[in-house]
């Protein structure tokens, strides 16, 4: 249980998908113009991450590893992700039209979000780690914790950036830096702030 929480906290703050690994940057930069849409995308990422990562964990440990088919993992992981995103989209549309209306446009985008694929690939790397390591993913519960943590970390980052960018609208930025340039530097400074967490002992 303790490992569950330390893995969760670690993947939110220390191993933050955006600030430590730069995963999911494209949509992170494109969809962070206002807080409301950022929240929607963040929620969608947490949701999809929570489903795909445990599924890929089971696929990896129960099917690929025993059969020695590790080299197929890229194709299978991306197929699982694309399939589940499609499935989630259909289910949400059928049972919760209001949620669909707010997430709708973001769901298909998530299939090619590197944070999702990256999560699965990191999971694959960490299966063999020493169980005492706080990064290790030793059982199904750990993969859920990692999925939740990395999703929340990503959502936290995009909401923060969106809030900053809303304020930045009123700033007088040098012309060539306007838009993307200043956003990159802002993210750099945020990442610097997040570096403080790396000293956290969990």
């Amino acid at each position: 249980m303790e490992h569950f929480f330390s893995l969760l906290v670690r993947s939110i703050f220390v191993d933050n998908m955006i600030f430590a690994f730069f995963l999911g940057m494209c949509s992170f930069l494109a969809v962070s113009k206002n807080v409301k849409t950022a929240l929607g995308l963040g929620a969608a990422v947490i949701f999809v991450q929570l489903i795909t990562l445990p599924v890929n964990y089971l696929l990896q440990t129960k099917v690929l590893a025993p059969l020695g088919l590790d080299f197929l993992s890229f194709i299978l992981f991306i197929a699982v992700i694309a399939g589940i995103v499609q499935l989630v989209e259909m289910v949400v549309e059928k049972f919760s039209p209001s949620l669909y209306a707010s997430l709708g446009i973001f769901l298909p985008l998530i299939a090619v979000n590197c944070a999702i694929m990256g999560g699965s690939l990191f999971m694959q790397q960490r299966i063999g780690m020493d169980p005492a390591d706080t990064q290790a993913i030793a059982c199904f519960g750990d993969s859920v914790a990692f999925a939740l943590g990395s999703g929340i970390g990503w959502a936290l980052a995009i909401v923060c950036l969106a809030a900053i960018r809303e304020k930045l609208e009123y700033a007088d930025v040098p012309k060539p830096l306007k838009g993307v340039g200043i956003t990159f530097i802002t993210v750099g400074l945020m990442a610097l702030a997040f570096q403080c967490f790396s000293g956290l002992s969990i």
Binding site: F19, A20, F22, P176, L177, T183, F184, G188, L189, Q195
Partner: peptide
């Protein structure tokens, strides 16, 4: 460290633009 990569790309964009 990671943050510097972001800041450097920001600077490349600055020069390019």
């Amino acid at each position: 460290m990671a943050p510097m990569a972001l800041i450097l790309v920001g600077c490349v964009i600055w020069i390019h633009r």
